[in-house]
Design a binder for these strands. Structure first.
Lengths: 225, 225
DNA sequence: GCGTGTGAACCAATTCACAGCA
DNA sequence: TGCTGTGAATTGGTTCACACGC
C-alpha cells in the first residue's frame, strides 16, 4: 500500500477514528480492535485495517491497536499535532460560536484573530478576541503565518472576502457562507454547507416514511462531518 | 437507471446543484448545461447527467436543463419542498446561530422550538424563540410532528439528550456535539463534526507544503458540506 | 453543431478469504 | 484461538463513446 496515496473516503474516516480513540483514552482503555472501531463507523473491519495501514501504523496481532499510539499516529498523519493558524472573518453569531469552540485547539487549530468590517463591531470582545478591522488583516496574516481563513460572513460578502484572503497568500478556505466561491488553482475550499445536512436528513425521513416501518435502519450511519 | 436507488455520493452532490440553480434563478438565467454545473463541482459532466437522471428530471437537448424546473425537481426529490419540522436542543452560541439561520427555512426546515435545561436560560428570547424547559419537549414533539432533533449541547450531555429524543419517537438526529451517539436501528444520526474539517484542511496544507508549489491545485474542490 | 441520455469500459473502494503471528 | 495484514474478488462510481433530438 503506497503511503502518500490516500482516498478522499479514507481521509474522511480518519478523524472519526481519532475521536473514538480520544474517548477510549479518557476511559483508560489500552487496546482496541479494528472490529470495535468498525462498529462505531458502521463499516467493515477490513476497511479499518486498510485505513490504519495507510496512515502507517501497525497493530499487534491478538491484542489489536494501542489506543494511544494509534491516536498519536493519526495526529501525526493528519498534521494536527503541528499547529495550524487561522483567521476568522465575520463576527456574527456563528463566528462567535466558532471563535470559542474548544475543539479547534484540541485539533491543533489556533485562531490568530477575528475580523469584521462593521465599525460598530470593531473593538468588541468575543471569546477573548478583540474584533479587528479588515484593514489590519494583512499585517496579522504576515506576522502569524496564517494558513487558513474561516469565513462566517454573509453570502453577499463571501466572494469578496475570499478574494482578499487569497490575495494575501492564504491557500485554504473554510467557507461557512451559503455561497460557492471561485478560487485560483492551488487554493482549497471546504464548503461547510448546512443545506446538505438538511437535504440528507430530509431525504432519509422521506424515504423512511415511504416504506412504512422499513426494515433497514441505517442506524447511526455517519453523515461525514 | 432504477429510480429509488441512489448512491451516497450522488445524494451529497444534489444539494450543491440546488444551490447553484438557486443562484442562477436569481440572476434570471433560464437554461443551464451539465457542463456548467460540472465545472462548479469540479466533476465530469456525464456525472451531472447521471445525477439528474436519478432524480427523474429530463433535460432538453440543445438547450440544456431548465433552471427553474430542475431546481424544483431537486426540491421535490429531496423532500425539501415538504416542510420538515425540527426542535433544537442547547441554546448556546452555536444553537442561537442555528436558530436564526435563514437557510433552514429556504430548505424547508422549520424549527418548532428551542430547548435548554439551564434554568437561567429558560424563558429567554433568542431569534424569536422563547427558550423552553426540557420538560415540555414531549408535548412539542407530539403537537408539531417533529421529525428532526438538532443537538447543540455539550459533549457530556449529548448521549442523554439523544436517548430522550429517540424515546419520543424522533428518528433523525443532527448532531453538532463532538460526541459519537449510539442509537437503535431505524434512527439516523448525521454528525456535523468540525474536527473533520480541521483535519482535512490541515492535511491538505501539510501535503501542499511537502511538494513545494505542487502543480495539482484541487482548486475549489468540494469538501462536501 | 450542441446538447442530453445511456450502455460499456474503466477505475477506485469495499469486502472476501486466507496467511501469519502471539 | 483471536487478532492483524494483504492479495484477490467483487461491488460501486466515474468516465468514455456514441446514439439521438433540436
Amino acid at each position: 500500500m503506497r503511503s502518500g496515496t490516500i482516498s478522499e473516503q479514507t481521509l474522511r474516516r480518519i478523524p472519526h477514528y481519532h475521536q473514538i480513540l480520544s474517548d477510549l483514552e479518557t476511559k483508560g482503555e489500552k487496546y482496541v480492535s479494528s472490529k470495535y472501531l468498525a462498529g462505531f463507523l458502521q463499516i467493515d473491519d477490513t476497511q479499518v485495517r486498510k485505513d490504519v495501514s495507510v496512515i502507517g501504523y501497525r497493530g499487534k496481532p491478538k491484542s489489536g491497536y494501542s489506543v494511544t499510539e494509534l491516536r498519536q499516529a493519526i495526529g501525526e498523519y493528519l498534521g494536527i499535532n503541528y499547529e495550524n493558524t487561522a483567521i476568522l472573518i465575520g463576527a456574527g453569531k456563528l463566528g462567535s460560536a466558532l471563535a470559542e469552540y474548544p475543539g479547534f485547539a484540541e485539533y491543533g487549530l489556533r485562531i490568530a484573530a477575528v475580523f469584521d468590517n462593521r465599525p460598530g463591531r470593531v473593538g468588541e470582545l468575543i471569546s477573548g478576541f478583540t474584533i479587528l478591522p479588515v484593514e489590519s488583516m494583512r499585517r496579522v496574516v504576515n506576522s502569524y503565518d496564517v494558513g487558513i481563513a474561516i469565513l462566517t460572513v454573509p453570502k453577499a460578502a463571501a466572494q469578496t472576502v475570499c478574494d482578499t484572503v487569497v490575495s494575501m497568500g492564504i491557500r485554504a478556505i473554510w467557507n461557512f457562507a451559503p455561497a460557492r466561491l471561485e478560487v485560483p488553482e492551488g487554493v482549497i475550499v471546504r464548503n461547510e454547507n448546512l443545506a446538505v445536512g438538511v437535504a440528507l436528513l430530509s431525504h432519509y425521513l422521506k424515504t423512511n416514511k415511504a416504506d412504512r416501518m422499513g426494515r433497514t435502519g441505517t442506524a447511526g450511519k455517519d453523515g461525514e462531518g
